[in-house]
Design a protein around this nucleic acid. Structure first.
Lengths: 339, 339
DNA sequence: CAAACTTTGGCAATCGGTTGTCATTTAGAT
DNA sequence: ATCTAAATGACAACCGATTGCCAAAGTTTG
């Protein structure tokens, strides 16, 4: 008995314990478990049985250290309390789990610095990352993508695989909806200046408005939180518009609350359209007309694209860009223009 | 020049690169960076300068493997799309980040099996875990707590440090509120049978009801989702009560929607009280009377308790149980009993 | 100026796996 | 029966840090 401890105390079993139990080398155990075809079936079965008996669980740290693969994928969101990300996160989580990966979820607090440092941090502890609504510059993002596999969501940078949500087309639908209700003075309540989706939505909107000969003015920017809705509502009222298209549902819902406080009726005096169809959009008062899209699916697609990058085996031309459809869901917050 | 590669390609720098650059041993670099007082100040400064110059970032995998500490804490939630957990998650995230830890967030999908396997998985990749609303048995939880530092939230098991939310006392407040409005036939819409908080709330409630001489019946169980609210509403109407106390806000909001569909007015025909004061409770229609508590703070406290377990240095008697206060927030969903 | 003690930093083992290399066994082909 | 090729499994280096041990250098004290 030269072995250090015949009956290991309580320390989790390692491949060495299995090797000792089976009378083979540790490397054989490793192969039996990760490349079964490299090991004789009889040896393999003995090893697998021993592993099961010992309740062996591979140490992911050690595995990552020697193989370079961590089996984890980072998911960066700007604000974990924004309901928009719930479904997205659930989508990524489900898809990652199905593929045997672990999700590392990080809230970057809407800060480009936190985002950048998180990426650096994750560089060695994740195999790839999904970055949602990045606040970084195109250059920074491109540089980061060169260092590790990456897929963006809601952010289009040439050269970086992305999942985009086709809000521009839905924005046009929303505009037509409002025009058909007789509105001619409309406001766009902008999101953060660093948000690419806000910028793009505005350019689509102003272009479409020009074509249709209606006036759309841009107000804001507003932080994507319900609290900002109060300022947004006041700005809208002051500007004299009869309808608003908000950057997202949080702002829209905040506006609803503020307008109610001020005694301004929705939709009789003012129509509001949100974006994202988040949790709550269907039960606020009045229920919010909003642009909906399959967010959970977007999360799943993003992960699929990332995993395709990580395991380029099955081929099948890696898509580098995927656009999720969007449609306008009309509820109670939009109605005929006053007067 | 015996060194393998004078100008390292692009591979992230390691302590060996720093050591080579400074002409010291790797172990000295390690010490200079983690136990600075063990290294001469001049050497240390040279090393630190070199580390900065090389943009050195320690490899957390390697660190974890050799030190046994991972610098990560797992946070298990049953359903990431339940808004109740948003604030909790944010609280844990903030507190962990402040202490230099990484948060590993996992959605256990309301399943005890996923919960158990996740714990096993995390055993080697996290230093401790925060378990919210566990679906496991007391024994399983106790056994798991013996294997790794753990703090539960909303789950009380003797021997396991816990953060509890004092909903029982708020439940009594809610009951008194309803009684003062003239209600005498009241229902409790129960949550999952495996939920300890639902069970405890019911026992407090039925006891208090008896003392006060009013009738409170238990309906359900209902899944903690808005979709379950429809069934809950129908059950409440059928049972002839005039007021309901729901297990949580999701169920309560679902009831609100269903009652509206059925043309039953809230609060004129039926009063509803929720629990948790989640996102949406203030802007649903009518705004929900609910039991509120500082959820984000609960997350922070849970992490503090866990970290105290991990670093028993500063002493200060580790609290093993912390109760968060709760109060009833009265909004528009409760009113005088009909008739 | 020597003895005793403290500081400092190098060596090497270790954490738990992965993986390239190579010798040996086994099987198939001729 | 002989030769070749394939299958198998052991050895050892390695991933990037941490840490116990120890020797060399420096400092203080008598």
């Amino acid at each position: 008995m030269v072995t250090t401890q015949p009956a290991a105390v309580d320390r989790p079993p390692t491949i060495h314990d299995i090797a000792a139990l089976c009378g083979v080398a540790a490397s054989t155990v490793s192969r039996a478990l990760s490349t079964p075809e490299r090991v004789n079936i009889r040896t393999r079965q003995r090893i697998q049985a021993a592993a099961a008996q010992l309740h062996y669980i591979p140490n992911s740290q050690a595995k990552a250290l020697s193989s370079g693969r961590t089996g984890a994928v980072g998911v960066l969101v700007p604000d974990i309390t924004n309901p928009f990300y719930f479904d997205l996160i659930r989508g990524t989580q489900l898809q990652l789990k199905a593929a045997g990966y672990t999700q590392l979820l990080v809230d970057t607090e809407e800060s480009d610095e936190v985002e950048a440092s998180t990426m650096e941090q994750l560089r060695k502890s994740a195999d790839g990352i999904v970055v949602t609504a990045s606040r970084l510059s195109d250059e920074a993002l491109l540089a980061a993508a060169a260092k590790m596999p990456m897929v963006t969501v809601n952010r289009d940078v040439p050269g970086v695989p992305a999942v985009l949500i086709d809000t521009p087309s839905a924005t046009t639908q929303a505009l037509d909806h409002l025009i058909s209700l007789g509105h001619t003075r409309i406001a766009y309540m902008a999101g953060p200046v660093t948000s690419q989706s806000s910028t793009r939505r505005w350019s689509t909107l102003s272009e479409a408005a020009e074509e249709r000969g209606v006036e759309v003015r841009r107000l804001g920017p507003f932080a994507p939180k319900t609290q900002s809705g109060a300022a947004a509502a006041d700005a809208a009222v002051h500007s004299g518009v009869t309808a608003c298209i908000a950057f997202n549902d949080l702002i829209a819902i905040g506006m609803l609350q503020r307008l109610r406080e001020r005694g301004i009726r929705v939709p009789e005096d003012m129509s509001i359209v949100g974006c994202d169809d988040i949790f709550g959009a269907d039960f606020c008062n009045p229920p919010l007309s909003t642009m909906a899209s399959p967010i959970e699916q977007a999360g799943r697609v993003a992960v699929s694209m990332l995993l395709a990058q990580l395991n380029p085996l099955a081929g099948g031309g890696t898509r580098s860009r995927s656009v999720m459809p969007t449609h306008l869901t009309v509820r109670g917050s939009t109605g005929a223009a006053p007067g």
